[in-house]
Design a binder for these strands. Structure first.
Lengths: 228, 228
DNA sequence: ATCGTCGGATTGTTGAACAAATCGCTCAAT
DNA sequence: ATTGAGCGATTTGTTCAACAATCCGACGAT
């Protein structure tokens, strides 16, 4: 075979197995992603190429490539000739994001999944309960994300997985405002539990409906926080 | 306001209204996308930076940025230190792509849509019929894509729209093989018709089920063509 | 207050350079 | 015959410096 085994079915595995050091651009992107998630860079903030290049000790061109990555993930917006800014989501975007989540998550749960995938969902539920018992709001938030990530993972679709994680990354951008209410996720614990048991019982349609109603309620709350 | 109206709800409109010449990198990416769609660049083919830079009369760095765009869209795969190659999808990817389509399209049609959006779906159906009458296989294919694009558009979600067009772009990559059978789409005309009328009648669940079965059959055919 | 104009700062793009990695080949050793 | 080391050519990854184009804010004229 003259062409290397590019993509194809085994690409995911190959990419995962391949021993490769992430490029500098990738590491810059990762660093920025981190700062984004930590709320160090607030929505609307400007990212100046030269500044970041100096701060991270890399070339401006490399920063540029990193920006391209982040822009593709919608974490950042590029205004031609004006610069890149941390994406800020308005009410319309909140609805849009939830529309995507409804599509992805409901579809995944409706199709069910292998037992070990279902077990992963259960694990996320327990993780949430533990976090609640420990009064660890931070852990509660990540547990919630694990829960929804596990639901998408039911579909065993590489593309759906990345779409979901991108959407979750987008949401983290404005969660920093939302979590002023410390008990934000607490109310969803029972939802998750109920959805999970329905899933385990094979009542997929019911699980889907529950999930759907959860997402609707969640969207409503988020919209409220976001001055709709 | 110190920060420019970045993103937020009105970003889509702003981006659409803004008078901006696409950057050189964008134009390079567009050109490559075109060649990809035309089948000029076959899956597995290598894209050498310097060659393309010369051919299009741009800098190698600019080509690099274009590659980043295409890689984000999965049209191209980047193998570290080895180069970028036209993505080639294996049987697993076919299933994956259809999983995404099921999620997006079914979700969109189940939620229904504004009358003018439904009308757009109808228009795509008629477009397909006209193409069939004219024996224009090319037009038949694009009409089919318009149909499914219109279905997703029902949801009025910017993100779902771009996800769908990316998936369709991915599919075009291996449609070049699939369309050896000239009557490929012909059989789907009746499906589209039926789905559309169900949609117009407000029978959303039925429309969803029909669409789902269509996608399953379509996947099966594609998998068969792709040496499963 | 509104409207040009001008200067500074930042982005977009280029071209050249160099280290590092990969590939294909030769050639010797087993 | 196969393996493996070595080597040269090619290509990618990254940096740097430069320049045009664009944008922003301030300043000044009306």
């Amino acid at each position: 075979m003259t062409t290397p085994e590019v993509a194809s079915g085994s690409q995911a595995a190959a990419a995962r197995l391949r021993v490769t050091v992430p490029s500098v651009a990738d590491r810059v992107a990762a660093e920025l992603r981190l700062q984004l998630a930590e709320g160090l860079l607030l929505p609307g903030a400007r990212l100046t190429e030269s500044t970041i290049a100096e701060d991270l000790g890399v070339s401006r061109n490399t920063v540029r490539e990193a920006f391209a990555e982040l822009a593709a993930e919608r974490l950042v917006v590029r205004l031609p000739n004006r610069g890149v800014f941390v994406a800020s989501l308005g009410p319309g975007d909140v609805h849009d994001v939830y529309t995507v989540r409804r599509a992805i998550e409901v579809s995944a749960i409706r199709a069910g999944g292998a037992p070990e995938r279902v077990a992963a969902v259960r694990a996320a539920v327990e993780e949430g309960k533990a976090a609640a018992a420990a009064d660890d709001e931070e852990a509660l938030g990540t547990a919630n994300q694990h829960f929804h990530g596990a639901i998408v993972a039911l579909a065993e679709s590489r593309r759906l997985d990345t779409m979901m994680s991108q959407v979750l990354a987008e949401m983290r951008l404005f969660f920093h405002k939302a979590t002023v209410d410390a008990h934000f996720y607490r109310g969803y614990l029972d939802d998750n539990e109920e959805i999970c048991t329905a899933l385990e019982a094979g009542e997929l349609d019911r699980a889907g409906s529950l999930l759907l109603s959860y997402l609707d309620r969640s969207e409503e709350k988020q919209s409220a926080v976001h001055g709709d």
